[in-house]
Design a protein around this nucleic acid. Structure first.
Lengths: 331, 331
DNA sequence: TTGTAGGCGTTATCAC
DNA sequence: GTGATAACGCCTACAA
């Protein structure tokens, strides 16, 4: 029992293949009778048009590739889930490309996406250079990363976020405020570095001392814990700006293990503000990214690129506002 | 600058299309000279074979659909990520079908997957009935759900897990042990119900009183919190078996809000044991599912179905062992 | 309002 | 060893 094709439907409905195709695509003139006959036949055979054959004709595949480092981080999970919702509404299917922190894997995925004729790509990784993406020749939008002049970037307002986090701690009385997280000052390709800049800007503006401790985002939790422990042991710290919520959780965890009281001895601010963290860690003060808005914008921009790939970018960079989620427990 | 095709490579290499195809598929006799000429041309043009056209010819699409309720739950996220790894190793790409708890959405995704000629499906939802899946005519394997006689089920040993969780609490001295989570005794389609059976089995074996409180898995955290609060207020409780770790976190959260000490006043055991929870909540005792093994088995079984769709199932049900992850803090 | 014919990019079956 | 050529399932001028 092989999958039925257009011609089977046509035979069953007693019409030609063309007519069936017209019904499917709602194209040209058709009598109501014919339509219903065809629909009935399709129903009866549980017919699904072969999307491969349609796309071979230049029709869109309605497939888009989403390249992110992982889905096990609640932030990415929620972002991808929102992207999925926005896409589903427009009949786009997602090919999930979990690239890890692995350039080779990302490269392979890029090739596969090309081979599968995806209509476009949403990229949220930082493994590959511009060239590979340019070579693909596909419409692309990027989350939180600078790919090339032809690729629009969507991110939250990282600078304000970093500044805001620092100012929250300052206002809560902290005077020894540390910055902990991914910061690669040498690499201006990464908008996330603006979080550090926001921190520095505020620290300088109130005349405090800068304390920057950098840990790669991709680093294991075990390493992060060790770094946190070292910071807390060796320095006078009363506030920590973390560049993501999970790192903030680790800070709280380690502090407690060391007998430090949060927020009495040390206060913590996170970054991202996922639903997950708001639900399971309402005690954490954090800078929330507008995840659904980011997702919608990414999808909208990608659709524009898909519909008109050669139009110059109206805008290269989109920064969406962050907001503080305050809790009295971590601060 | 349109994407190059087979014929372009052929021209550039000075050979026929057939030869190029042979090189790509490593098929038939070919001189080394020809091969290298063709490879060079492919490289130069950054040629990617159009996978649509190949599949139209009967070749596998190397696409598989994964249907799960969400990726924002760390358990599903980690399971899907492990599935992705196993698939990537065999050149399979994943179409992510985030079906929520929505039968209609799942139905639509099923149709799309058919239309896209996926090679197979891994299903982990509980929205749709057997018929819809049978109609699809696609090779399917299911996670933790009974779909039909033709669909193999992989799950962890839920019964032992439920029993183990209960016995852990008992051994820690609890005598008023409650069961909290998804349990639909009327519906034996759901292997997860075995967790309840394991609980009941142990409770009966030691002569304690059964206390079963059922909350749908799909219920919001807010509702779950309200239910937990009610249980803790109205009953004498010294131990709670939760059917998933996130619910267990809520129990701890609510207990603390109510001034109850965990584990002195009430002890909690979770279920799932993701890396995420082990990292960010090492204090939680839980029954861990063997996520990587489940993922690998799902993919292996699916590949068998794909390669030989009509072979009767060697085995219908696969139950992988669980293990306790003990912590002294939640118990 | 409906049907015929050619083609999308690739593979496979023939010949040469 | 290599090259024509007919499919694969569908879409779309062009006819009728």
């Amino acid at each position: 029992m092989t999958r039925p094709k257009l011609i089977d439907v046509a035979k069953k409905a007693g019409v030609s293949a063309t007519t069936v195709s017209r019904v499917i695509n709602n194209y040209g003139y058709l009598s109501e009778k014919t339509k219903s006959k065809v629909f009935a036949a399709m129903e009866e055979l549980n017919y699904q048009p072969n999307s491969l054959a349609r796309s071979l004709h230049g029709k869109a595949t309605k497939l888009i590739g989403v390249i992110f480092p992982t889905i096990t981080n609640p932030f990415f999970a929620e972002l991808i889930e929102e992207i999925e919702k926005a896409c589903f509404a427009d009949d786009y299917k997602l090919i999930l490309c979990d690239a890890g922190y692995n350039a080779q894997k990302e490269k392979n995925y890029l090739k596969m996406l090309q081979a599968n004729q995806v209509d476009g790509i949403i990229a949220g990784t930082h493994n590959l250079g511009i060239e590979d993406y340019n070579k693909s020749g596909l419409p692309i939008v990027a989350f939180d990363r600078n790919l090339s002049d032809q690729v629009p970037i969507v991110s939250c307002d990282n600078f304000s976020g970093g500044r805001l986090a620092t100012s929250e701690l300052y206002q809560a009385g902290c005077r020894h405020i540390f910055f902990l997280g991914s910061a690669n000052v040498a690499n201006n390709l990464h908008p996330t570095n603006s979080r550090l800049e926001g921190y520095l800007d505020f620290i300088d503006s109130v005349g405090l001392t800068r304390h920057v401790h950098s840990v790669a985002y991709s680093e294991s939790a075990a390493v992060k814990k060790a770094i946190i422990k070292e910071i807390l042991q060796k320095h006078t710290v009363d506030g920590i700006v973390c560049t993501d919520d999970l790192t903030a959780l680790l800070v709280i965890q380690i502090s407690q293990q060391m007998g430090l009281q949060v927020p009495q001895d040390v206060k913590v601010v996170g970054f991202d503000g996922t639903n997950f963290l708001q639900t399971y860690h309402p005690e954490l003060t954090t800078i929330a990214q507008p995840i659904p808005e980011i997702a919608k914008l990414l999808v909208t921009l990608l659709q524009e690129r898909i519909n008109d790939p050669h139009q110059p970018l109206k805008q290269k960079r989109y920064e969406l506002p962050v907001k503080v989620i305050r809790s009295t427990t971590s601060m």
